[in-house]
Design a protein around this nucleic acid. Structure first.
Lengths: 329, 329
DNA sequence: TTGTAAGCGTTATCAT
DNA sequence: ATGATAACGCTTACAA
């Protein structure tokens, strides 16, 4: 690989001039520029981004830190982030924390050490913004889960309202004995739990079962089995993310529970499968593309203007009512 | 942020000594090491990886280049790659090409400019290894799609056999009028088409319909609609990836076709939804975790030993027979 | 308009 | 066992 010196030599100019041609940073005599461009083409020269990063003390990389990219919600966001980053010439480092604070810490450190320009970050529950030094060094945009700090931009769903609306949808459809499955790994599960309770209270109802579990299919399955076997069996199950929904659906199918006649089911996040199963599942869809895009834009804005006061964008979910929550006549 | 000079000063040693302590590269007097370690802790020093990269001319980053991380197959592989990379202290740059050769080229260039240690890569059909200069500069491991070159390690599925086996499964279950939907964006679709035809030939059958389409749900849906409307309607549909399967399934449901009694359906790749729908879908599962892990290991091996002769690992799929391909009595 | 040279934060060579 | 220093490839004052 040729470097800037080779180009300079070939074009009979200094490296500074080559750099200027590349950066369009100064006025260059057209014929000089021509010679440089030729040399670049000749040598198939490409600037070394690492060297540039070191020199200018910043990079065109951002980090994406989520619990697990396999969660369809994060998959969609990841893709949206990558698209938005690509448009600005940035690349994306993918980091999965598995809700493990140590892994999270390790990655955050790594990203800092890699001099990333910023991070889009869905923190574990244990994460405490204040106790970390990253803030000063790396711009952050928090997604999906709120943190108590006002030091970072955030892009969130209005989880309480969304859960409340989804719960009311069940109540409006005649269900009264509601149970809920919530992820125990994030503030999101808690917020949705709050919305769930709020809707019940407004109708003077009590939940017949609430489980906080690890947000995985297996746990959704097991918790649902437990709900189905309890004395006061629910007539509707609320799940706070798509993995729990899948587990719950599977459990009902295995137990030959008729959905929605015996037990209704609703969940969060749109996925490939929720409209394909029978009955199709009622979900509170999150605008994942928008979340990813806005988060990335916010990050770029902060990178350019590090001192602007942090902003929280709260988005609304949209209820997609389908067969799993409407009693068949 | 403090740098190595600060540490050196604080510990009363030279930067060289600090570097040595960090690298365990030489014997250091225990008390000196102690002082250095203390200074490091005191100043919360972390080595700048960009500077290190520049100096040693390599990095602990690898690129992952796929068409779309939202394809569950690539999602799973991405996660496996990230895990394997993490274990070795490497980070992963995620790149989506959308089957677009220009985007692919741009990313490959970017990765090279970023001095990545290597790339795990699912190439577009247009990609030509020979015409690229990356080979010399960046170790490659090709996944999912074969290229004609013997210059790179590859991790592939035995697509022809897998497709053949899946097709035979249909034939064994009494289906005779088979149609196939294949992705037009990769060699994989072609290979699976070959396997499909091979199985048919062995039973002296002809396909009643073959479509090469863009590997997306919508295209699977539309192509299936076309198949269902044609004069000689198939009694079984073979799909070459999970997005096409989803589209086909949806089309049959919308057209109220009874699966598998009227038309059977089989596909590739395990997903969350294929076992949840009714009937559950028979699929040829790919060992995605293994593919990702092996690809990453192969890449590390090549990074360490760039001259070893390239290796192709061919894995077998596993047939998961379910209701969508077994006529109900 | 262009060149010279310092410096980004490391590591590695060569001394001592 | 440790220190001085050049070098990695680039950008950017400052000079010319």
């Amino acid at each position: 690989m040729s470097n800037i010196k080779d180009v300079a030599k070939a074009a009979g100019v200094s490296t500074a001039t080559v750099s200027r041609v590349l950066a369009h940073s100064a006025i260059i005599k057209p014929e000089t520029r021509e010679r440089v461009l030729e040399a670049i083409a000749q040598l198939n020269y490409r600037p070394n981004l690492i060297a540039r990063s070191l020199r200018v003390q910043k990079s065109a990389r951002i980090g994406l830190v989520v619990s697990d990219i396999r969660n369809p919600f994060f998959t969609a966001i990841g893709r949206a982030v990558e698209d938005a980053a690509y448009e600005q010439g940035y690349s994306v480092l993918m980091c999965n924390t598995d809700e493990n604070p140590e892994k999270e810490e390790l990655y955050l450190n790594l990203l800092r050490d890699e001099n990333v320009a910023g991070v889009i970050f869905s923190p574990t529950q244990q994460f405490n913004m204040a106790s970390h030094t990253y803030g000063g060094r790396m711009p952050f945009v928090i997604i999906d889960r709120s943190v108590d700090s006002h030091e970072a931009d955030m892009v969130l769903l209005d989880n309480v309202s969304a859960a409340c609306e989804l719960t009311k949808h069940l109540i409006d459809n005649g269900y009264r004995k509601l149970a809920g499955l919530f992820g125990d790994a994030s503030t999101t599960g808690q917020d949705r739990h709050r919305g769930f309770l709020q809707a019940l209270q407004e109708h003077h109802l009590n939940p017949v079962g609430v489980h906080f579990v690890s947000p995985r299919i297996k746990q959704g399955y097991d918790a649902t089995l437990a709900l189905l076997e309890q004395a006061d069996r629910p007539d509707a199950i609320f799940t706070s993310n798509s993995l729990l929904t899948a587990g719950a659906f599977q459990a009902m199918r295995d137990k030959k529970i008729s959905v929605p006649n015996e037990v209704a089911l609703v969940g969060f996040d749109e996925t490939t499968w929720d409209a394909l199963v029978d009955p199709p599942i009622t979900v509170m869809a999150q605008p994942t593309e928008e979340i990813g895009r806005i988060a990335t834009e916010l990050l770029f804005r902060r990178i350019q203007e590090p001192t602007r006061s942090p902003e929280t964008v709260t988005l609304k979910g949209s209820l997609i009512a389908r067969g799993s929550s409407t009693k068949r006549k």
